[in-house]
């Protein structure tokens, strides 16, 4: 087992200051390591990888790594990624989002990216909290947890990211943890390699904002919690309902082989532009079109 850290160093930006901004013991660095190892294992060149990140702690990951990187607006990473992938399908587009990013403000973009099966890999770094803004509850904060904005305990239920993505039609859905890094490397590599929309939820600790208020004083405490509660899916399924408690299954949840949207579009374009095919004038909206839409709109304005 050598060459793990040195390999990572090769992919970091030499003109960025290190250590990075994350708190001591933050899982985001581990995710970055896993991402780099996965990309290296797949033999991708730095130029063909595009990292699109949202806002929040997770969004800061992009700046440190020497790929094409875009740090977008809050929650919109997937929309930018969709544009980049459609504009240049040869790129491997990977989005890095936090749970606030992907599930709250960008929830609509996430389910639509999954539905249209765009060939983008989404890493959702779930730390159950809004870390960068100071520890407010997020859509994945467990019920009962204490945060800055739920001082008396969270009353709302948390999203199950994996189930949501699967229901929205994602091609691949995975969950990994920052403690089970070997598995995480494998999941991330698979998610990048496979066609269509692939999502990896990554359980990562935030002891600074989440743990501190919920009986996990240090990073080590949080990692112990992850070690104890993240169990492989097969094991989890075998557990009786009563013993599951806080436990979360990790592993592969969905693996389908549908073509990505950019592939389907490419095929359509090739069909339409086949040489020898008579060039038909594209259909123009008829003269009455505006008039019709006007009439319809008068009845039911948007």
């Amino acid at each position: 087992m050598a060459d793990i850290t040195e390999l990572i160093h090769d992919y970091l930006r030499h003109n960025k200051k290190f250590p990075h901004v994350f708190c001591a013991g933050c899982g985001h660095g581990i995710v970055l390591g896993a991402l780099i190892r996965s990309i290296h294992a797949l033999g991708l060149s730095k130029d063909e990888v595009c990292i699109v990140a949202g806002i929040g702690c997770s969004g800061r990951i992009a700046a440190y790594v020497d790929f094409n990187t875009v740090h977008t607006t809050h929650g919109r990473a997937l929309t930018f990624a969709t544009g980049i992938k459609m504009a240049n399908p040869k790129l491997k587009v990977i989005t890095i989002m936090g749970d606030g990013d992907a599930m709250s403000i960008g929830g609509n973009h996430l389910i639509h990216a999954a539905r249209r099966n765009i060939g983008v890999t989404a890493l959702v770094l779930n730390n159950n909290i809004y870390g960068m803004t100071g520890g407010q509850c997020s859509a994945t904060t467990p019920q009962g947890a204490t945060t800055q904005t739920t001082p008396f305990g969270q009353m709302e239920k948390a999203f199950d990211i994996v189930t949501l993505a699967a229901a929205a039609g994602a091609n691949g859905v995975y969950r990994g943890s920052t403690f089970h890094v070997n598995m995480l490397d494998r999941l991330v590599a698979t998610a990048i390699e496979r066609p269509g929309f692939n999502l990896v939820e990554i359980i990562t600790p935030c002891h600074t904002q989440y743990g501190r208020k919920n009986k996990y004083k240090s990073a080590v405490d949080m990692f112990k919690w992850i070690k104890k509660n993240c169990v492989p899916k097969e094991k989890f399924d075998a557990l009786p309902e009563a013993d599951r408690g806080e436990k979360m299954p990790i592993g592969t949840f969905v693996e389908k082989d549908h073509k990505g949207l950019e592939q389907l579009y490419g095929e359509l374009q090739a069909r339409l532009n086949r040489p020898g095919r008579p060039v038909a004038e594209p259909e123009q909206p008829s003269a009455q079109h505006a008039e019709e839409s006007r009439n319809i709109m008068n009845k039911e304005p948007k």
Binding site: T79, G83, M86, L91, H109
Partner: peptide, 16 residues
């Protein structure tokens, strides 16, 4: 899916 996403997509495309 909405105009926010439309803007995001064209920015992405323009970057590409």
């Amino acid at each position: 899916e909405d105009e926010i996403a439309s803007m995001g997509a064209i920015i992405g495309a323009s970057l590409a």
